[in-house]
């Protein structure tokens, strides 16, 4: 049974709902823009801290974090939709009408990606106006956005797995809190070397730290540990894909 028609249908419907419902569309679009403004604007002096060495500047430094954050939360917001569909019973229609149910997860995932693409475009445009410096070449920029796509998928697959297991929108905090904490326990404001104490230890163990450093390196034209960052991103997405598809099986068994 073909998976594509199901994925196409689910993605179309999810995007249609998001794009025509302002209360769903605007928060996921405006929050990253707001965070970028608040961080890049309010904390710009942090770049003058001794030992802070990022040639493209603080705006670019924060842009990479906010881009990855918007990618992760673009996925999580789509997971809210999964939970809502189960809570309202609409998911039952999807389960019933989809010959190949794996296409349901794929469809939601495509919607998460498309939804984030809109946010990323807006964010990039605003950042360019605000003075984003791109030191890297086209391949580097592509590398950054590819990392963000993987983060988007990981965020979506995590929340999709939760949504399909708990099947209620009340699972929202469980979807977003771990993502929020994982993102913010990385070197958000300053490079890893400038973190001290417990936050340094936590950040060192946090895979997002390496993805973030590589992403920032792409825009500086000197990306560190690219293979490690992609390995972590692909690995996380793969493990979480397993988590999401097992969530689907869980939902199928529950009826």
């Amino acid at each position: 049974m073909r998976i594509w028609p199901v994925a196409q249908g689910v993605a179309w419907r999810t995007l249609k709902i998001v794009l025509t419902t302002p209360s769903l569309f605007f928060p996921s679009l405006l929050f990253p823009l707001f965070f970028f403004t608040a961080f890049a604007g309010g904390l710009s002096q942090v770049s003058h801290v001794p030992g802070f060495n990022y040639p493209p500047g603080y705006t670019t430094f924060q842009f990479v974090f906010v881009l990855l954050q918007s990618a992760a939360f673009g996925g999580v917001f789509t997971g809210f939709g999964v939970a809502r569909d189960f809570e309202t019973g609409f998911a039952r229609r999807l389960l019933l009408a989809s010959p190949n149910r794996s296409g349901i997860v794929l469809g939601y995932g495509l919607a998460a990606l498309a939804r984030w693409a809109i946010t990323a475009t807006m964010l990039t445009m605003i950042a360019l106006i605000a003075g984003l410096n791109i030191g890297g070449n086209g391949v580097d920029v592509f590398g950054l956005y590819l990392l963000a796509v993987l983060v988007n998928m990981a965020g979506f697959l995590w929340s999709c797995g939760i949504g399909m297991r708990l099947r209620t929108i009340q699972a929202g905090p469980l979807m977003q809190m771990p993502v929020f904490l994982t993102l913010f326990f990385a070197p958000v404001y300053v490079p890893l070397e400038l973190l001290q104490g417990w936050i340094h230890a936590v950040a060192r163990a946090n895979p997002v730290t390496y993805v973030l450093a590589t992403g920032r390196g792409f825009l500086a034209g000197d990306p560190p540990h690219v293979a490690l960052a992609f390995g972590l991103a692909v690995g996380s997405a793969a493990v979480l894909a397993l988590w999401a598809f097992r969530g689907l099986r869980n939902a199928e068994a529950a009826g």
Binding site: L43, Q45, V46, H48, V49, P50, G51, F52, F184, P187, V188, Y189, V190, L194, L195, Q196, G197, W198, I199, V202
Partner: peptide, 10 residues
């Protein structure tokens, strides 16, 4: 408090 501790060096 953890992430911005370095700001105190400004």
């Amino acid at each position: 408090a953890g992430g911005l501790k370095a700001s105190t060096l400004l």
